[in-house]
């Protein structure tokens, strides 16, 4: 049985686009990423899966429950956890009060253990308004996982977290996934989907344009390489390079042309180093690409200022 089965789901807000004709399937125990820039429709998709928004057309089945049926939608939440992008708490209440309320509503049996695992047990008796971003986020993580769900749907779970907290949450999610929990994770972070997701669906302008294996994503799936050399470049030296561009940047010395080379490299790093060693290199940077550059590489699109993308 699939954890999620979404078929031709469309959601519009009046004349504004939400998501259009989105179809995908998440297998039991799978970790599936929805990758897309801001305004690409990730939150609309997650909210529709949560049942807080009704799709205009299409059907969604989650853990065998048809979301079109109201009682089935409620029943579904017994085995599914949700982590909204920015959960709104009544900040005058304590974390413990919120945990206890949700534990009662969800008949949860991990509500005592999870705060310890997530390292928020020391702040539970304080009002939520005193929490920092990390504690708020981890409280909402505890709410999402407290009833030991078989699937957890998350919208930008790493937003507003520093590097340490991101690593903590990543490690927590990895352990939950290893224990058999299916994950659906909507994000614009390449590093997250790369590490956590078995498969990734790419969302562009509300359309799910592609589904790729997680390992095909950067940095495994490619790096941006930029170097400056005074030698003449032979493109055939770089087997795994795409979109090689060279720019003559001026004279390094009399009669010496200096060239800046940029390429998207998908092969093994050791091979790249071997190739580069045959050139006189003045400067070299190798970095994981941004989401914008990856989309540009894959689909020939560029991101607009509003976050959407358009054909280049």
């Amino acid at each position: 049985m699939s954890s999620i089965d979404a078929e031709s789901v469309t959601k519009r807000y009046g004349s504004t686009r939400g998501i259009a004709d989105v179809t995908f399937r998440v297998g039991s125990g799978e970790s599936f990423g929805i990758l897309g820039p801001a305004e690409s429709g990730k939150t609309t998709l997650v909210r529709t899966l949560m049942g807080v928004q009704r799709p205009d057309t299409g059907s969604i089945t989650i853990e065998g429950h048809d979301l079109d049926d109201r009682s089935s939608r409620t029943e579904m939440k017994r085995s599914v956890g949700f982590l909204p992008s920015s959960p709104s708490f009544d900040t005058s209440r304590t974390g413990r009060a919120v945990l206890e309320q949700h534990a009662t509503l969800k008949a949860a049996d991990r509500s005592d253990r999870l705060p310890v695992r997530l390292d928020i047990s020391t702040v539970l008796d304080d009002p939520i308004r005193t929490y920092d971003d990390r504690d708020r986020r981890f409280l909402s993580v505890a709410l999402a996982f407290m009833h030991d769900p078989s699937l957890v749907i998350m919208d930008e779970p790493f937003t507003a977290l520093d590097r340490t907290a991101r690593a903590e949450l990543q490690s927590f999610l990895e352990r939950e996934h290893e224990a058999g929990t299916s994950l659906l994770l909507a994000t614009s972070r390449l590093d997250v989907v790369n590490r956590l997701c078995d498969r990734v669906g790419v969302l562009r302008n509300g359309h799910l344009v592609d589904i790729r294996p997680g390992e095909s994503l950067p940095p495994n799936g490619g790096r941006r390489v930029r170097f400056i050399t005074t030698a003449k470049i032979d493109s055939s030296d770089f087997n795994h390079a795409e979109r090689i561009s060279t720019t003559e940047t001026g004279l390094a010395a009399e009669n010496d042309e200096r060239t800046t080379v940029e390429l998207f490299y998908t092969g093994p790093l050791s091979e790249l180093c071997e190739r580069l060693s045959s050139y006189p290199i003045e400067d070299l940077t190798v970095e994981p690409p941004t989401l914008a550059s990856v989309l540009a590489e894959w689909y020939g699109v560029r991101l607009t200022a509003s976050g959407g993308d358009q054909l280049a």
Binding site: R70, T74, E75, K77, F82, P84, P87, S88, H102
Partner: peptide, 14 residues
Amino acid sequence: GDGTLELLLTAPIS
């Protein structure tokens, strides 16, 4: 308006 209902509805309640 402030989203507390959305969080509440993550629990299995109609």
